[in-house]
């Protein structure tokens, strides 16, 4: 599998560390109800198909990446840097 890092270019999967689903980006407010934190930390759509998940280019530029890809075919549909993502960070 190869991911195209927006900074480094196309790289082998071994350069990246996977974290998990995009859910981890949507951190609830500190006082959000327990259900929100349970969903944030644990519960997942886990689709057989297109998903968005988080990868870290730790053997490269240290970017966290938001990857859109298909879990059945392994096709990579899009890669963007988490820090530069649409909607932006806090």
């Amino acid at each position: 599998m190869r991911l195209t890092c927006p900074l480094c270019g196309a790289r082998d999967r071994r350069e990246f560390t996977y974290y998990g689903a995009e859910d981890y980006l949507n951190r609830p407010a500190p006082d959000a109800p327990p259900q929100a934190w349970d969903d944030y930390l644990h519960n997942r759509d886990n689709p057989a198909g297109v998903t968005r998940d988080l990868w870290y280019h730790d053997m490269g530029c240290s970017s966290w990446l938001l990857v859109t890809r298909n879990t059945v075919t392994h096709e990579i549909l899009a890669v963007e840097a988490v820090a530069d993502r649409k909607g932006g960070a806090a």
Partner: peptide, 13 residues
Amino acid sequence: DFYASYASRGNLP
């Protein structure tokens, strides 16, 4: 292989 997948096949790393 460390990434979510339903492909029943792995990769070389």
